[in-house]
């Protein structure tokens, strides 16, 4: 008789749902997964609405409402091991970028003063919807989390490796490497002296974006995606969250690390890069700013940077 399958529950909180779709992106590999894992409860895949006991629980998304909080606690109570799955669950992700605004501002923009929808009735939904928190909270500040798999979404290869390592009780093969380790562009010294916007010109296909004057976050971002963006002409926006050295070392930061490398490759002064990133901090820090590991850094001054840009 074959061994009993490992039971898996999944749940989503405040999130786009892409991480659940990424599970299905395993394609034929999902057949191997289903041989050893039974998906009991999953918003996209099963009809089960309760929380039956399970060995593994995948939670995607961050905590923004009362509903998110209750659901996260129900998952914690029903699962032996909880995995924070995807950047939103690990760091707060894109919903975490709302840290830069108050809840009132957001409701006003979405329901009352939105230029692209009819808001003439002036109604903010307040019945049958869960109460919205004042701010986004990453999952591990609400419940205990056993394991973390960042990525927006994590590439199917990393999901497969993570699930298989759990079922076989071995260490996952994923390493602490940056996006640059998987990008084929050549980093070379250039005479570029000005930072370019992604809208400026056509970047060379074989040369590193930093060498060409485009700000790319590849060198400060953990590889959980296999670097599809920079290899297809798009700068890395840092969606899998910062490298561990940025999170553990208080004197290292996204802007200073990028500035050090970019100024070594080009003639652009490091402070120009730092200032440029601070000017668009809401974009460059979007994925991880809700996490205490970034939010509580003494050098992370998002309110000051936003004020400097928006007061003019």
């Amino acid at each position: 008789m074959s061994e009993p399958k490992i039971k898996l529950n999944t749940e989503w909180l405040s999130v786009c749902g892409g991480c659940h779709v990424a599970l299905v992106d395993l394609h034929e590999k999902i057949v191997d997964v289903m041989k050893v894992i039974e998906i009991q409860r999953s918003p996209l895949l099963t009809d089960e609405k309760g929380y039956p006991p399970a060995q593994i629980g995948l939670i995607t998304g961050s905590v923004r409402t009362d509903h998110d909080r209750e659901v996260a606690k129900a998952m914690r109570a029903s699962c032996d091991k909880i995995i924070a799955f995807g950047t939103c669950a690990v760091y707060g992700g894109i919903p975490g970028a709302a840290l830069a605004h108050t809840a009132e501002d957001i409701l006003d923009r979405v329901y009352l003063n939105n230029p692209s929808t009819d808001s003439s009735k002036g109604v903010v939904p307040n019945r049958l919807v869960p109460k919205m928190d004042a701010k986004i909270t990453p999952l591990d500040e609400v419940i205990d989390v056993d394991l973390y798999l960042p990525g927006c979404p994590p590439h199917a290869a990393f999901i497969f490796d993570a699930l298989m390592s759990l079922t076989k009780d071995r260490d996952p093969r994923a390493k602490e490497e940056s996006i640059c380790a998987k990008c084929n562009r050549l980093m070379k010294k250039t005479d570029v002296s000005q930072i370019k916007s992604v809208m400026d010109g056509m970047p060379d296909e074989d040369t590193c974006f930093l060498s060409q004057g485009y700000i790319c976050l590849g060198s400060v971002t953990l590889n959980r995606c296999a670097a599809p963006c920079p290899q297809n002409g798009v700068v890395c926006t840092g969606c899998a969250g910062p490298m561990p050295q940025i999170l553990t070392e208080p004197n290292r930061d996204i802007r200073t690390e990028v500035a050090a490398r970019m100024s070594a490759l080009t003639n652009i002064p490091p402070m120009d890069v730092v200032n440029e990133i601070e000017k668009s901090a809401k974009s460059y820090y979007a994925y991880a700013m809700a996490s205490g590991m970034v939010r509580n850094k003494p050098t992370f001054l998002i309110e000051k940077w936003i004020e400097q840009v928006e007061k003019v």
């Binding site: 602490e176 380790a181 980093m187 930093l210 060198s219 490298m243 553990t248 490398r261 590991m293």
Partner: peptide, 25 residues
């Protein structure tokens, strides 16, 4: 630390305890 692509690693060195590190993380 500076390598953009995390290609360099060291082995067999005396590791200094960095007391200022974010221990939780």
């Amino acid at each position: 630390y500076i390598c953009p692509s995390t290609a360099i690693s060291q082995q067999d060195f005396h590791s200094v305890k960095n007391f200022y590190r974010d221990l939780d993380f």
